[in-house]
Design a protein around this nucleic acid. Structure first.
Lengths: 121, 121
DNA sequence: TGTAGTGTTATAGCTATATAGAACACGACA
DNA sequence: TGTCGTGTTCTATATAGCTATAACACTACA
């Protein structure tokens, strides 16, 4: 997990996004415990309450389950749930504006491919 | 210009984005006046200081020029400046994450095309 | 000179986000 | 029983974003 936060979104929202990515990318499997609130707070230099807020939203969405004294765990079926939810959200809320931006800026598939590859290095 | 703000970004930043789009799309030509601070504030139900903040950033970036008592005007060369700046910013800051998301969600060009077209209706 | 537009500055208050530190409650284990 | 992990709650402070309202300064025009 990257260590840096940007200023475009609240930290708790970026953190939630990263947990979502870890689940979708099989870094976290169903049944796995999430990194503890204290560990994440210490490692990424944020307030435990900020971490808790991110985790709380995941619990509200039925992605994780909190077990007091034990930790938080990825729910069964969480990946499928996220996959479908993120897909719909991306197609409905993000892609339309991205598509318009790509056209407006005259970006070709070659431009986009080159930009994707240069970042992989 | 759309009338609704989302909660993902501060209003002043969304407003700045819309002015940028209007310039890139030739809705605003170089030399044109921007809608006045009061007009935008009234029409979109935001505080004049919020509008001013968006406009101030455009002035800081040499996109517009403020003329007290007269209005704000799109600078000569602003479109080219924006076009290049937005292109670079999009390719460097936005596209890499978008690309990863598209791959992660298993979205095909057909999925994306369908989503673009359904929004056009 | 007065009016009607423009930008600009000031004061004040509220909400959201984030921080800091501490302590409480639970569960597993030695 | 005590320890060490976990989640959870509490109090307090600071900053950013946004709101509301008002007034000041500039410009063009009748």
């Amino acid at each position: 997990m990257e260590h840096e936060w940007n200023a475009n979104q609240p930290i708790y929202r970026q953190l939630r996004g990263r947990i979502v990515e870890m689940i979708l990318d099989h870094v976290l499997e169903e049944g796995d415990p999430l990194p503890s609130v204290r560990n994440v707070a210490a490692e990424y230099r944020v307030n435990p309450l900020t971490v808790l807020k991110a985790y709380q939203q995941l619990a509200d969405d039925n992605i994780v389950e909190k077990r007091r004294g034990l930790g938080m765990f990825v729910n069964a079926g969480a990946r499928q749930l996220l996959f479908e939810a993120e897909r719909q959200r991306f197609l409905a809320e993000e892609w339309p504006a991205i598509s318009v931006t790509i056209e407006r800026l005259g970006l070709t598939p070659a431009d986009l491919l080159a930009a994707s590859r240069s970042k992989e290095q």
